[in-house]
């Protein structure tokens, strides 16, 4: 007979547990959530960089109180009345309720160690950070505003790619955002692209890979096609570390890998070096 009985965990209690503890996607280490947050949502054991909300990202990178949000009222519509197992309009409402955001991308002006820049941040929690009309419009507007105000642009990407539910219009956001960035290049204003976990598909194949300087967080998955699709296509195993930030650095696709706790410092330095 057992000395003690394993206590049954009710779903409610388990949920409460999830609210307090986080499990690392890479090393499975379980960390107290508050502790994880103190560590900027980086696993203390293997330093896996958890995806973070747009709000947290801004708090980590910007000088306190310097952020002024732009185009807050832009909201997605359902241009092709898309429906899979659920209506796109319902998916949108759900994502808005869950994240408190209107869409997957937040833009505004701000300062990093006193250097001004236009900032754009993806929130992966909103429909996988997918690139739809609102995201594309916000990127175009922030770039045009940067040209107007003669400042640089920083975009933090975490995106699964184009937003299928908007059909061809989502694909066209790739052309639209890339064309906008050509203005920045013409005006000789810097664009720093920060790739975070995960950055794939249409986002990678447009604005994300167009940075004058491309920075990535450690371990971030970065690619055009997803690893599963590639594996199915070539029917062999993928090389170790494939499509991770370190792999891309080795193959010459990105400039720098920067840990989250140093991100502000490095971005501030980069802006300063490029501005002056």
């Amino acid at each position: 007979m057992a000395w003690f009985k394993k206590k049954e965990v009710t779903p409610k209690e388990r949920k409460k547990g999830d609210a307090l503890w986080s499990k690392c996607n890479v090393c499975n280490e379980i960390t107290y959530k508050k502790e994880l947050e103190r560590n900027l949502n980086v696993c203390p054991k293997c330093s896996y960089h958890f995806p973070i909300s747009a709000q947290k990202r801004l708090a980590i990178v910007l000088d306190e109180g310097s952020f002024r949000e732009l185009d807050r009222g832009l909201t997605s519509v359902d241009p092709i009345h898309f429906r899979d197992t659920k209506r796109y309009s319902e998916r949108l409402k759900e994502a808005q309720r869950r994240t408190g955001l209107k869409d997957a991308f937040v833009t505004g002006s701000g300062k990093v160690h006193d250097s001004p820049a236009m900032m754009g941040v993806f929130d992966f929690g909103f429909l996988g950070g997918s690139l739809g009309s609102v995201v594309g419009e916000k990127i175009a507007r922030m770039v045009e505003k940067a040209v107007e105000e003669r400042v640089g642009v920083i975009i933090f990407t975490s995106s699964g790619g184009a937003r299928m539910q908007e059909g061809i219009l989502s694909l066209m956001q790739m052309a639209k955002t890339s064309a906008a960035l050509s203005l920045l290049k013409r005006e000789k204003l810097p664009y720093i692209s920060v790739l975070t976990d995960p950055t794939t598909g249409g986002a990678t194949a447009s604005f994300a890979m167009l940075g004058d300087v491309i920075v990535a967080e450690p371990g971030a998955l970065i690619g055009f096609a997803g690893p599963r699709v590639i594996k199915e296509t070539i029917k062999t195993n993928l090389p170790p570390g494939f499509q991770r930030a370190e792999y891309l650095l080795k193959h010459g696709m990105i400039d720098l890998i920067v840990e989250r706790k140093q991100l502000k410092e490095i971005l501030g330095q980069l802006l300063d070096l490029l501005y002056h």
């Binding site: 790739m174 052309a175 890339s178 064309a179 960035l181 050509s182 290049k185 990678t204 194949a205 447009s206 604005f207 994300a208 890979m209 167009l210 690619g223 055009f224 096609a225 699709v229 590639i230 296509t233 070539i234 993928l238 090389p239 494939f242 499509q243 193959h251 696709m253």
Partner: peptide, 19 residues
Amino acid sequence: PGVGAEERGQAEAIAHNLR
């Protein structure tokens, strides 16, 4: 979608053309 294509910057090549 292949290993070599990714290693040599499929996404970058497309993005570059768009711009």
